[in-house]
């Protein structure tokens, strides 16, 4: 049997303030999409950062197709995991095209210039996020939503095996939220990759993800298929706020009461 694309076993989540959660175990196969839900400060970003090697694994193991994260080089990890950050500082000038091209860095060889293929991939990513006309603009001149689309285009250009998205819907209007996540999910099923997103939008998670990891902030977590984890009682408990649900013909909708 093949190893799952991502396997996490007994992983500790620590912040400078202490332990965030009991050791986490989960696994994700190709084609699956995982949402990480939970209140502020429960460790959603910490988990994402740990999974893509930005924070050391202190206890437990993270492995990609059976290969331990700690054995992988930075470049190997960057080919596997494409990280979209929640907020990025942009102090130095750069054009949209240059920022998206940085997504190709994990695939670059020392002293090599970008290939024709790299340029094609960047142009295609720009086109998918309606950014082609902004390619030569300095990123400082863009709105928050446009910058978020640039960041999504860059992570698409990175062509990782697992997309790791921290608040992918940040700054996006509802039309672009749906467009961007549709795009990412299509990419996941097309290329047989996977996606993990930390989000505060329960409905986006319910709509786009096959699995949910719910951190309850009291040291516990629930992991499972979306239908089995998301219900109003569990969510109310995790968010310490009454969450109601209505069922429409298409989907279930959650909202704070």
């Amino acid at each position: 049997m093949n190893s799952p694309l991502l396997n996490v076993s007994e992983l500790s989540l620590c912040s400078p303030g202490g332990i965030l959660c009991e050791p986490v175990s989960l696994s994700l196969n190709a084609g699956e999409r995982l949402a990480i839900l939970g209140k502020n400060g429960t460790g959603k970003s910490t988990l994402l950062h740990t999974l893509c090697g930005l924070q050391p694994v202190t206890a437990g193991t993270v492995s990609f197709e059976g290969r331990d994260l700690r054995q992988l080089s930075g470049q190997q990890t960057a080919r596997l995991c494409g990280m979209l950050f929640q907020h990025e500082a942009e102090p130095m000038p750069a054009t949209v095209y240059e920022v998206v091209m940085l997504g190709r860095l994990p695939h670059a060889r020392q002293w090599h210039w970008e290939s024709r293929q790299d340029h094609d991939i960047v142009q295609q990513s720009l086109k998918l996020l309606n950014l082609s006309s902004l390619a030569t603009r300095d990123i400082h001149t863009l709105s928050g939503g446009e910058r978020q689309r640039v960041a999504i285009a860059a992570v698409l250009a990175q062509q990782p095996r697992i997309f790791m998205l921290d608040e992918p819907s940040n700054h996006l209007d509802i039309a672009f939220q749906i467009q961007a996540l549709n795009l990412l999910c299509e990419r996941v099923s097309q290329d047989n990759t996977a996606l993990i997103m930390a989000t505060h939008d329960i409905n986006l998670a319910a709509r786009f993800c096959t699995h949910v990891l719910l951190l309850n902030g009291k040291g516990g977590y629930r992991f499972g298929e979306t239908e089995s984890v998301l219900d109003s009682a569990t969510l109310s408990d995790a968010f310490e706020c009454r969450v109601d649900m209505i069922v429409t013909p298409e989907r279930r909708l959650f909202f704070p009461a």
């Binding site: 080089s73 190997q76 080919r79 494409g82 990025e88 750069a94 860095l105 990175q158």
Partner: peptide
Amino acid sequence: SRGDLSAAALGVN
């Protein structure tokens, strides 16, 4: 120049 974390996520040591 895009930030420490962004660079690290792109595989830069």
